[in-house]
Amino acid sequence: MSRPGPGKVVERSVVPYDWAWLKRGMASAFTLPGLVMTFSFMGFGALLHSEGVSLVAGIAQDAVIWALPGQVVLVDAIARGVPLFLAALAVTLTAVRLLPMVVLVLARARMPGNPRWPEYLAAHFIAATVWVMSEMHFGKIPRPGRLPWLIGLGSMLVTGMMIATSAGYALTGMMPLPLAATLVFFTPAFFLLALVDGARLDQDRIAIVLGAVIGPVVHAFWPSVDLLVAGLVGGTLAFLAGRHLRHPREPENGA
């Protein structure tokens, strides 16, 4: 595929990204996870309204932050007039969780040898939902198509969620509480079933249980770092337990 430069030895042909998958990624936004996300972001729109933060500021957050827990923390900080530095600290604590997700998704999507700008772009779109969706779809996407698929999916989701935020903002107060709460309930239901459904290794199942137990315990004492502690402690224990369970049997290769 690669054109040899004049008088240059062809080293190794780098397989380029297959951008035909960009459109398919956009289409993947219109599936169940996209619907669940829509309800969450309608809830975010409702939050903006009730906290007295402008819709424009909320839509801008969808575009440039793209991580709902951080956005909720930021809206709260703006509404209460928390100093900029403290707001930044609170938001960045919620964003640490994005690092492992970006590593996991890109490790299965990037094509070494290509320019890296698509990775920097795709990383902006990666959060919990897109990680879960990539686990669901990557098996059916040839590797050169994965990063374009992510970028198509992410750009369509961001656009859709800006609309959902606006709709939620406009609908606030018109919906009875049980119905509005049910929209929000889609999110834990989706994440839990997606995690359980995607658990392939012993390690995954142990990590789910440990995270769900350690999280609330830490939350009671030190709420700002509960997710980090649960992730690091629960994940590490699950990783060690998973190795221990696998090792006594024949050492097999592969993920």
Binding site: A207, G211, G231, G235, T236
Partner: peptide, 10 residues
Amino acid sequence: AVATALVAAL
């Protein structure tokens, strides 16, 4: 494992 435990905690 860390990411899985973290989302479970969420």
